[in-house]
Design a protein around this nucleic acid. Structure first.
Lengths: 153, 153
DNA sequence: ATTGACTGGTTCGATATCGTACTAAATGGT
DNA sequence: ACCATTTAGTACGATATCGAACCAGTCAAT
């Protein structure tokens, strides 16, 4: 029995896509965390990574939005990073309610080490897609990501 | 300073890809859970969905492997589903240690309802990719997923 | 048949994640 | 200036996730 929608099977394909994405995410998460030291967890690494990519000094709320997690979760993640000395929380000069998250030297070198230790895992399947395929699939997913982001009002 | 690897920038592209995947996964997870009733959570829905797609009667361990989660997590997820009456745990006739997970009528109708209530969310961005793009990106990711799955020994 | 290794599942304790409720600072309308 | 509303962050309690240890059933070698 087909759906009653205007473009019925499209939805099914999107479900399938999100499903694949979920599985890959789970696989990479498991692999990543296996490499990270002791209790270090993927979101913490992701935050460091993000701060490198888009400059540090972000506020906790900006980070929470970037990762689509509740701000309480970000508070927790940042607390963990601060306890390990990978980030430093400073007051926001523009807004006394707010804070800024800055990477420490330890945080930066940790990222380098982590990426290096992750490389072999990536290398284990890096022959799957060639450069052109990678570039294309990244572009496609980025398009979808932006659209989804915009769609959530 | 460039990496010392044979195909340096490839790794970077893979990181980028996994990053996009992570964000999309987070976005869809948030959207999905917003629709699901009360304390119902994405992994529970995913299990029901999986049981429909590949026939129910799977064992908990098979499910844990399919989703790449520890078996303890699956035990917990299944307990939740059973408490809600969406699945039924039966003894495995072939192995007394093992169990089988079967969908109940309630579980099946719940899935129908959930998918219907999710459809509008998908529709909100379903104009982003056309059928051909979808098919292609799904195929590419499926290839990567299988490769990653195989790579974890 | 007996024993030792292995496998499927649960229990338990530690941490992560999240929603609700709260505090303090900023903003906007009068 | 004043007060109501909004915004940034935190505290707290509930649930989810996970690793380690455990138990019972299976398998394989003898």
């Amino acid at each position: 029995m087909p759906e009653t929608n205007a473009a019925p099977e499209l939805n099914g394909l999107y479900f399938q896509l999100l499903n694949e994405i979920g599985i890959i995410n789970q696989l990479s998460r498991a692999a990543f965390e296996a490499r990270l030291p002791d209790g270090m967890v993927l979101p913490q690494f992701a935050v460091i990574n993000h701060l490198i990519r888009v400059q540090d000094g972000r506020t906790p709320l900006q980070l929470a939005r970037a990762f689509q997690v509740p701000k309480t979760s970000m508070t927790h993640t940042l607390a963990g990073l601060e306890k390990r000395g990978f980030v430093e929380m400073r007051a926001n000069p523009d807004d006394a309610r707010s804070k800024q998250v800055w990477l420490t030297e330890a945080g930066r070198t940790f990222r380098q080490t982590a990426i290096a230790s992750l490389a072999p895992d990536v290398a284990a399947f890096s022959d799957t897609l060639d450069r052109d395929e990678l570039v294309e699939v990244i572009a496609t997913l980025a398009r979808l990501r932006k659209r989804m982001d915009a769609a959530r009002d």
